[in-house]
Simulated scan of single mutants.
Amino acid sequence: MELASKEDVDAPLSEVFEAISDFASFERSALRRGIEVQRLGDDPTPQVGMAWDVRGEFRGKARQLRLELASYEPSSLIGLSAEAASLSGQSQIELLALSPRRTRISVKVKVQAKTLSGRLLLQSLKLARSKVNRRFKQRVAEFASLTEDRLSQSA
């Protein structure tokens, strides 16, 4: 299953990239939402191979996964890969400067099933594809808006 969305942010590319590569902020945000996040390793600087163990509930069942920074190109790309017991996935966040003060965020997520239970979970998501797509695009838009607001307040 693949999901994709694009949003524009009224902020320079370098500031947007700095905001989306602030992994400590994302860790705190996940913890506030009741998701357990454990960073593997002590180095706080973003680099390929950086990883997290993540635990939380999804669809009424405890889930855990390993999230890894698969690609990292400053100012343009962040790629993450995720491995769970029944699913695996990749996500890619690309930034494109539309002008000196405007940046486009493109987010792509691809999820594959590894087991029968993973196939059942993906099938239920595919049956609700329009709702899942709408929610995904809404979340990306919320993220872009929050990023824009946070950057405008700090300027």
Rank of each mutant, 00 (worst) to 15 (best):
Q64R: 08
Q112N: 15
P44L: 03
R135P: 01
A155M: 14
D22T: 00
W52F: 02
V140I: 15
K61R: 08
G89N: 03
V54F: 10
A30K: 02
A24W: 09
L31N: 13
D8A: 11
E73Q: 04
S124T: 15
F17S: 00
K126A: 10
L120G: 13
G60H: 01
V132T: 08
R129F: 12
V140R: 04
E68A: 12
R139Y: 13
F23H: 03
G49V: 10
E73D: 08
A70W: 06
E36C: 06
E148F: 06
A97L: 04
P44I: 04
E27W: 03
S99A: 14
F136T: 05
Q90T: 14
R33I: 02
L120N: 05
K126N: 13
A30M: 15
P74L: 00
L116S: 10
S130H: 08
R150N: 03
A70Y: 03
R63P: 09
D8G: 07
L122C: 01
T45L: 12
L96Y: 07
T147I: 11
D10I: 12
T115S: 15
V9S: 05
L151Q: 04
A128I: 09
A141F: 05
R102S: 05
S99I: 04
E15L: 07
S5P: 06
A155I: 11
W52Y: 06
V48L: 04
F136L: 06
L3M: 06
K114A: 11
F136W: 00
Q153W: 10
D42L: 15
R119H: 13
E68P: 11
G34L: 04
L65N: 14
G49Q: 08
R104A: 03
V48F: 02
L77R: 14
F143V: 07
E2Y: 07
S99Q: 03
R39K: 15
K114H: 10
G60N: 03
A51D: 02
L125Y: 05
L120R: 02
S71R: 13
N133T: 06
V9A: 03
A85V: 14
S71W: 01
S88M: 08
T45H: 12
V37Y: 05
S76C: 09
S88T: 14
K6C: 08
E57T: 13
